[in-house]
C-alpha cells in the first residue's frame, strides 16, 4: 500500500522481461536452426548451428546449403567477425555494415550483436494483462543505442515465453513484427520453436524470415575455444 502502484508494476515488468530473456537464452545454449527466407520472388532455406553463452558471446556455423557450408560467425560483446572458407579469410564486420541485412535475412548484423540486451537497453511497463498473457511496453533507455522508438512485447503466462515483439519507430509507426510460435519441449524447457520476422516497411512488406529451432540444449558447458577468432576457421570444417 505504501509503494506507488506504477513503480511496483515497472519492477514487475522488468522482472518478467529478465525471465523471458533467461528462458530464451539460458545460461548457455546449443541450437540447431533452420532459417527460411521468403521474398516475393523466392524462398530459400539455410541451416546452422549456434553456440552461445548468455547474450555476450555466440558462435554460428552455417551447415546448409552446401555452397555456404562452413561459413562461421563470431560475436563477442559488440564486435563481429565472419569466416568464409571459400576465400579462407576472417573478416571483421565494419561498423558501417552493422545494420545491413545478415545473410539476406530480415535480421541485421546488429540484431544478432545486440539481440538479447532488451533488459539492459529498455525500461519495461506492463500495458495490460489477461489470464494467458502480458502486454509489455519497452521504451529505450535514454542512453541506449537502439533505433527503435518503442517495442511492445507479448509474453505468455505462466511460462513467461515471448509471443511477439512489435517494433515501432519514434513516430509510433510499426516497422516490423517478430512472432514466436509453436511452443514445444526442447531440451530442458518449453520453447518457442518457430520465430517469424515480418517487416512492415513499404519496401520489404510481404517478405518474411522464419527461424525454426530443431534441436536445443541449454545450460551445458561450452568449450571456451568456440569464442575466439581461431575458432572461426577451426570449427568451420
Amino acid at each position: 500500500m505504501v509503494f506507488p502502484p506504477r513503480l511496483a508494476r515497472a519492477d514487475e515488468a522488468a522482472e518478467i522481461i529478465k525471465k523471458v530473456e533467461d528462458n530464451l537464452n539460458g545460461r548457455s545454449a546449443v541450437l540447431k536452426i533452420a532459417m527460411i527466407i521468403k521474398t516475393s520472388r523466392a524462398t530459400r532455406t539455410m541451416k546452422m548451428e549456434s553456440f552461445s553463452v548468455g547474450s555476450e558471446k555466440s558462435f554460428i556455423k552455417i551447415t546448409y546449403p552446401g555452397k555456404d557450408y562452413g561459413i562461421t560467425f563470431l560475436k563477442i560483446n559488440d564486435a563481429m567477425w565472419q569466416y568464409v572458407p571459400r576465400i579462407e579469410k576472417i573478416i571483421k564486420i565494419p561498423a558501417s555494415m552493422m545494420l545491413q541485412s545478415w545473410m539476406g535475412t530480415d535480421f541485421s548484423n546488429d540484431d544478432l550483436v545486440r539481440e538479447s540486451s532488451i533488459s539492459r537497453d529498455y525500461t519495461a511497463k506492463i500495458l495490460s494483462q489477461s489470464d494467458t498473457a502480458y502486454e509489455i511496453e519497452l521504451l529505450p533507455q535514454p542512453e541506449a543505442a537502439v533505433v527503435w522508438g518503442k517495442l511492445v512485447m507479448g509474453v505468455a503466462k505462466p511460462e513467461l515465453l515471448p509471443q511477439s515483439v512489435r517494433y515501432y519507430d519514434e513516430e509510433g509507426v510499426l516497422v516490423r513484427i517478430l512472432e514466436y510460435t509453436e511452443v514445444k519441449r526442447l531440451g530442458d524447457r518449453l520453447y518457442p520453436s518457430r520465430w517469424v520476422m515480418l517487416p512492415q516497411d513499404k519496401e520489404k512488406y510481404g517478405n518474411q524470415t522464419i527461424i525454426e529451432i530443431t534441436e536445443a540444449t541449454f545450460d551445458v558447458e561450452i568449450d571456451e575455444e568456440y569464442f575466439s577468432k581461431r575458432a572461426l576457421q577451426r570449427f568451420s570444417e
Binding site: N77, D78, A79, I93, A95, P140, E143, A144, A145, E170
Partner: peptide
Amino acid sequence: GGKLIVSAQNSAQEVAGVA
C-alpha cells in the same frame, strides 16, 4: 528532434553506438 543512432569502431576495435 528525431533520434539518431551513431555507431563507429572504437579504439578497442569494437563497434560502439550512442543514441
